[in-house]
Amino acid sequence: MEEWLESLLEWAQCSAEERPPLELDFRTYQLVVTDAGPNRIKVLKIVRERLQLAPTAAKELLECEEDLVIGTGTKEDLQPLRDLLGEHGAKSAYQLTDADIEMP
């Protein structure tokens, strides 16, 4: 904790030009399954457990033509789930939630 506070103080004392960019993204995203891939049964199991659904309900959602929202949070929070889906051949994407879409 001390190291973190010291680094934060150092960062705050730098001029704006000297500061390294903070690459933190606190926006809220939805993780969407766009394609279940070749291992549909394993992906179905993940969907079922994640959304706490009965097997038939999870299967219906996965087979629906629309993209399936499987989680909401920051990219950092959702990345382990995305990696797990990817390990089983599923394709997924991040979509900003309505609250974080910037208005023109």
Rank of each mutant, 00 (worst) to 15 (best):
M1N: 14
E3A: 13
E3D: 14
W4R: 12
W4E: 15
S7V: 14
L9N: 15
Q13L: 12
C14D: 12
R19V: 15
R19I: 05
P21C: 13
P21A: 14
P21E: 13
E23H: 11
D25H: 13
D25S: 03
F26H: 13
F26T: 14
F26R: 12
F26N: 15
R27S: 15
T28V: 10
T28L: 03
L31I: 08
V33I: 10
D35C: 02
N39H: 09
N39S: 03
I41F: 13
L44F: 06
K45R: 12
I46K: 00
R48P: 07
R48H: 08
R48K: 10
E49D: 11
E49Y: 03
R50P: 05
L51P: 07
L53N: 02
L53E: 06
P55G: 07
T56D: 12
A57G: 03
A57V: 08
A58M: 08
K59C: 05
K59Y: 03
L62H: 10
C64R: 03
E66Y: 05
L68N: 06
L68G: 04
G71P: 00
G71T: 06
T72I: 15
T72Y: 02
G73P: 04
T74R: 00
K75T: 04
E76M: 05
E76N: 12
L81V: 11
L81G: 04
L84M: 10
L85K: 08
H88I: 04
A90D: 00
A90C: 01
S92L: 10
T97Q: 08
T97G: 03
D100E: 04
I101K: 14
E102A: 14
M103R: 13
P104V: 03
